[in-house]
Design a binder for these strands. Structure first.
Length: 634
RNA sequence: GCCGUCGUGGCUUAGCUCGGUAAAGCGGCUGAUUCGUAAUCAGCAGAUCAAGGGUUCAAAUCCCUUCGACGGCUCCA
């Protein structure tokens, strides 16, 4: 049995023409309409033929569940053969449909049934809320819901978490730094445009813009990253400049976690799907996996570093003196087989790089304290990457129990960012965590993407058998914090590109932070005879320096340097050779089409650059110093 | 995954309605220019028009299928 449930403002149908298998009907059934209704499209299948009554009763049970969630008692049954490629006989189908109708009527539902075996026209207005479109497969002898992948004729096991999410009821609020907990409709969003967009995105899932994402064009034009047609969708190629930026951010984040005391480890990319512990965890994690078969094993590609680290924790001997114990891994890659329609440029990928840190804490007090410390670290990390407090919106999500016990702490988190945040509250714990936050970047299309996140996990220490010995010698379960200080590195680059594009539209010249700029200084000799001097200057300059040795006009070279968002462009010609200075175009001080030129010494420029990059990792330029020696990637 | 739009040299696009020799700019190469702050001039090379199938005397153009990108839906620890 396949059913598709659509919570609708209305559905109406009209019979057009009978088919050979049509049931005989009275004229009054040739048209039908219901309002505020759950439309149930049904395909009775071959596998139902053994026990049609069982199939009918299971279907009714599913319908009841959904009607309770969407709060209606009106049902329109609509035979819909297209849901299945393995249909039952028409006779069984009609019987089963009638049985469903009968059972629903017994349960006090207001039911109508569209006739079987007719060509019908129908109009339906779907309500469009998160639960308004659901599908179910009902199989005899199986309690579990499974989704059927038609193209593979293979059943995909959908994790329990994916399902439980549909059942979770969320209560949305806005929490202000003053500690006021307001319903979204009570909150005055004036001056909080991005928060409004974020709330709208989270709760109503509605957007009104249709533009192509600017970062997709930029990632190619700047030769950072590109699609790889030879791979699966959502698996990108990174050109030298993109790889450089990724590498710098990766190293930076790792360094910040190391400062906190995190130990860097490395764990496998693929795991046995039938490992008893992992199997249970898969069920609690709402992600779809890539799976591969090797020898006789079913393996899946990791979607985070949790697996490897928890398995490692399981085998470790840990004393209370070792806590909080932090481990970090930079996952290159984490794999998530997101739905194809969801993939966009660098925003949503199927293979991405993510720092994943886990902290074992002795009790909830320590977990909360660590949570707070990591919350602050995340703010700092993002701002150093170039994404400031004003660029992202905060969501804090927790269970009601956690909130009751930690009200002041939650308000404290809001005070830290000093702006209202979105709160999602659950009556029960549907997930493995009791508290989490995310920092969400809001782009020009009003889409929200999570960057940093921390969660307090109360489940996995038990599941993985992770324990520590407390001061009395007793074994105890730690609480585990999951933390990704920056979120996916690719997503950080997406946010930087989108931000730069937004700036550009506001009349601000777009650029990356200097420490992340692939070329930090470009030296431009005015004519061929200045080349030797240009090389000398380049040799004396700090940072990633290159030389535009092409035979182009100065104007053209300046413009091209601008197109690459190079922070400092030093022109050298007769004047500079005579004065010993260089003339520097400073991007951060330039206006569109109005470069800002400052005469300074090489030493002065070095000092300026040092100030901007000294706190960060440094890597040499991956490309040849002379532009004429560089290939083009796009 | 579903619905819709799109896919033409390396890049950006014209041509597609109404079938008949694929056009341009940028980039590349060659030559001239040796140049002072956001595009120097000229020439040359470069395209089985996403892939596969169909209709036709003839397909970039019409039809079908597949793949990919984007938008919407769904989803998003």
């Amino acid at each position: 049995m396949q059913i598709l449930l659509i919570h609708s403002d209305f559905i109406e149908y009209e019979t057009k023409k009978s088919t050979p298998v049509a049931e005989k009907i009275d004229d009054d059934l040739k048209k039908g309409r219901m309002e505020e209704v759950l439309a149930v499209f049904v395909a009775v299948e071959k596998s139902d033929e053994d026990k049609p009554e069982y199939a009918a009763s299971q279907t009714v049970a599913e319908i009841k569940k959904v009607t309770e969630q969407v709060k209606t008692n009106r049902v329109m049954l609509y035979p819909y053969a297209h849901l299945s490629s393995s249909l039952s006989s028409p006779k069984t189908a009609i019987e089963t449909l009638k049985k469903i109708e009968e059972l629903l009527k017994e349960a006090q539902f207001e039911v109508k049934r569209a006739p079987f075996g007719w060509y019908k026209s129908f109009t339906i207005k779907c309500k469009g809320h998160p639960l308004s479109e659901l599908s179910r497969t009902i199989r005899i002898g199986e309690e579990k819901c499974v989704m059927v992948l038609k193209e593979k004729e293979k059943e995909e096991v959908v994790s329990e978490a994916l399902k439980s999410e549909a059942k979770a009821t969320s209560y949305w609020h806005i929490l202000t730094p003053e500690g006021e907990l307001l319903k979204p409709e009570e909150f005055d969003f004036k001056g909080h445009d991005n928060l409004k967009k974020f709330v709208n995105y989270e709760i109503h899932k509605s957007r009104a813009v249709d533009k192509i994402p600017p970062h997709v064009e930029l990632m190619r034009r700047l030769e950072l990253a590109d699609y790889e047609p030879g791979s699966d969708s959502g698996n990108m190629r990174f050109y030298p400049k993109g790889r450089l930026m990724k590498s710098l951010i990766e190293n930076y984040v790792l360094e910040e976690t190391a400062k906190m005391g995190a130990m860097e480890v490395e764990t496998p990319l693929m795991y046995d799907m039938n490992h008893p512990t992992l199997k249970k965890y898969l069920d609690r994690f709402p992600a779809r996996q890539y799976s591969i078969e090797a020898d006789k094993k079913q393996l899946f590609l990791r979607f985070a570093a949790c697996f490897g680290q928890f398995l490692m924790n399981h085998d470790m001997t840990i004393s209370y003196r070792n806590l909080p114990l932090r481990m970090v891994e930079l996952t290159r890659y984490s794999f998530r087989k997101e739905q194809s329609g969801e993939l966009v440029g660098l925003r949503r990928l199927r293979a991405f790089t993510m720092p994943d840190m886990h902290s074992l804490c002795k009790d909830m007090d320590e977990a909360v304290e660590q949570f707070n410390e990591q919350y602050n670290m995340c703010i700092n990390v993002l701002s150093k990457i170039g994404i400031n407090l004003s660029d992202f919106e905060v969501a804090i999500r927790f269970t009601r129990d956690f909130y009751e016990e930690n009200r002041d702490f939650i308000v404290g988190l809001v005070k830290t960012v000093n702006k209202p945040v979105l709160i999602e509250l659950w009556d029960q714990r549907f997930f493995y965590f009791v508290l989490k936050f995310e920092f969400n970047y809001i782009d020009a299309m009003d889409k929200a993407s999570a960057l940093s996140t921390v969660q307090i996990d109360v489940e996995n220490a038990e599941r993985y058998g992770i324990k520590y010995i407390d001061s009395t010698g007793a074994e105890k379960r730690p609480f585990i914090l999951h933390c990704s200080p920056s979120g996916a590195i690719e997503r950080c680059i997406y946010a930087l590109l989108e931000k730069a594009n937004m700036n550009s539209e506001k009349g601000i010249v777009p650029m990356f932070p200097v420490w992340l700029s692939p070329t930090q200084v470009r030296v431009i000799p005015v004519a061929g005879k200045h080349m030797e001097y240009a090389k000398k200057v380049a040799g004396e300059l700090n940072g990633r320096v290159d030389i535009d040795d092409r035979e182009e006009t100065v104007g053209k070279k300046i413009r091209d340097a601008g197109k690459e968002w190079i922070p400092y462009v030093a022109v050298v010609g007769d004047e500079e050779i005579n004065s010993g200075n260089i003339t520097v175009t400073v991007r951060s001080e330039s206006l569109p089409n109005k470069p800002s030129n400052i005469k300074m010494s090489v030493g002065e420029l070095n000092e300026r650059i040092s100030k901007e990059i000294s706190d960060f990792p440094f890597k040499r330029h991956p490309l040849a110093v002379k532009l004429t020696e560089r290939p083009r990637f796009v």
